[in-house]
Design a binder for these strands. Structure first.
Length: 440
RNA sequence: GCAGGGAUGGCAGAGUGGUCUAAUGCGCUCGCCUUGAGAGCGAGUAUCCGUAAGGAUGCAAGGGUUCAAAUCCCUUUUCCUGCGCCA
């Protein structure tokens, strides 16, 4: 949520409108925010005048009561004021709610170097890494998707989809998962399940070496926290509700973001780096027909997430650092990928800037998202009321989030990239000490 | 799950209907003093609206009683202690 004072400053208000236009959104939310803020201030002022009057009468009453004078007239006057105050208060609350409803739908101010464009195909390819294994039929598409700059080798055999190979090798059971849980659930079996655990542990070790604090977070959050840590759209499309006022987390970002809710962090404690591991639960309501087969898009998965609280001036630097961490780990796993600078029209409201890491998938013949890292400035932390103190003044902390890796999604990338002609899946070297085997 | 006791500013902690405009201490900020540091002294240090003057709010959250609530009542959340249950 944006700072309300930005809407009150004419110059900054114009920046908000511009940012919204650059996101290809209607500026209505910003305009209504300003309108209701003005109305709220007016109602608040009126209400406070009445309250001041009432407070005066209360004091007068106290003095008269002390010397046993008659206070009946004052009581009546006081009651009258109460009714007026109640009325104005109702109005005030109403305007404030409307103001913040609209305000919460205004997107974060775009970062200075976010690409202004609309549509996935207009997001900039920042970088490619690795040597992609490409089927002949996908060559043309591959070149386009990698800016013609990425190394590749043409496959001289037909790789099997992760679903076919996985079923063939008894690495997961999807039918029985569907029977007892529903579609998009899975049992991971045998060596693939070990690989799943190994990858997570590998990523955690790597981040801990870089000074991250490892956090194994709760999977359920209360309404208060999730409302501040998630976006409005998530409640419809992503979040599972459990019980009256509790939700399953869709990412550890949500628990980590809310960790310091309503707290003041000492300035010299920043930056605070968290590596969070949690299961993630997503309804995937907005993607009914996408990736229905296999374990690529599922309702439940495990993820290692980087989450950092920092000073405003450090956001850009730390964002780069987090993306590098993610890259290093994917490089260690030897998965070829590209980095995408997500364009303004495709950004979620919280992100001022977002960089996606997409792996090359030899069977699907395209790049698929493995994770993303966002600069969110003070957008999340303002709602969560997380501040730091500097010279007796309090300021909102900035925060950033970045995937490190998510499994089983990353398993599909490994299966597609590391199967040989005979259908043997080779385990990346760095993982072998974790798995205890070299191939599946 | 049961019983009992708590929740007050950055922290500790006083305050059991009007004099709470929330004491006091610590911490922090600024100033004075000092060669410097410290000590000492003085001022400041919850939130919102307002250029300001000022006003309003605030004692876990929400509701209620009252002319008047940190203080009394109800509901909820949460922490502690003991008992019970449980991997």
């Amino acid at each position: 949520m944006l700072d309300i004072t930005l809407f009150r400053d004419e110059k900054k208000y114009l920046e908000i409108l511009k940012s919204e236009k650059n996101r290809f959104k209607d500026t209505k939310n910003a305009e209504e925010t300003k309108k209701y803020d003005d109305l709220w201030k007016k109602a608040k002022n009126d209400c406070e005048l009445k309250k001041a009057e009432k407070n005066k009468i209360t004091k007068e009453t106290a003095e008269k009561a002390k010397v046993k004078e008659n206070i009946e007239d004052l009581k009546i006057k006081s009651k009258q004021l109460d009714a007026e105050i109640k009325d104005l208060e109702k109005k005030q609350v109403e305007y404030l709610e409307l103001r913040d409803k609209f305000r919460s739908e205004v997107g974060n101010l775009l970062w200075h170097n976010t690409t202004i464009a609309q549509g996935e195909e207009n997001s900039k390819i920042l970088k490619t890494w690795g040597t992609a294994k490409v089927q002949k039929k996908d060559l043309e598409n591959f070149k386009k998707l990698s800016n013609n700059k990425m190394k590749f080798e043409q496959l001289n055999y037909d790789p099997k989809s992760h679903v076919d190979l996985g079923l063939e090798k008894d690495l997961f059971d999807l039918e029985r998962a569907a029977k007892i849980s529903g579609s998009r659930f899975y049992f991971l079996k045998n060596k693939l399940a070990i690989l799943h655990l190994s990858i997570l542990r590998f990523a955690i070790d790597k981040l801990m070496k870089k000074g991250f604090n490892f956090m194994y977070t709760p999977f359920i959050v209360n309404k208060d926290a999730i409302e501040k840590a998630a976006e409005l759209a998530d409640f419809e499309e992503t979040l599972y509700k459990v019980g009256e006022d509790q939700f399953l987390i869709a990412t550890a970002e949500q628990t980590l973001a809310a960790f310091y809710m309503d707290e003041i962090i000492p300035k010299d404690a920043l930056p605070i780096r968290f590596a969070g591991l949690s299961s993630c639960f997503r309804k995937e309501a907005g993607s009914r027909s996408k990736d229905t087969r296999g374990i690529f898009r599922v309702h439940q998965f495990d993820k290692v997430e980087q989450y950092v609280f920092c000073l405003p001036e450090d956001s850009e630097k730390i964002h780069a650092e987090m993306i590098t961490n993610e890259e290093e780990i994917i490089q260690d796993l030897e998965i070829p990928y590209r980095l995408i600078d997500i364009c303004s029209g495709d950004l979620n409201n919280t992100a001022a800037k977002k960089i996606d890491l997409e792996a090359w998938m030899p069977v699907q013949g395209t790049f698929r998202e493995l994770g993303s890292g966002s600069i969110t400035t003070d957008f999340q932390t303002r709602k969560l009321n997380i501040k730091y103190e500097d010279k007796n003044e309090k300021f909102v902390v900035h925060s950033l989030n970045c995937t490190t890796l998510a499994s089983p999604r990353i398993l599909t990338a490994l299966i597609e990239n590391f199967q040989d002609e005979k259908g043997i899946i080779h385990i990346p070297k760095v993982l072998q000490s974790y798995t205890g085997f070299k191939e599946i």
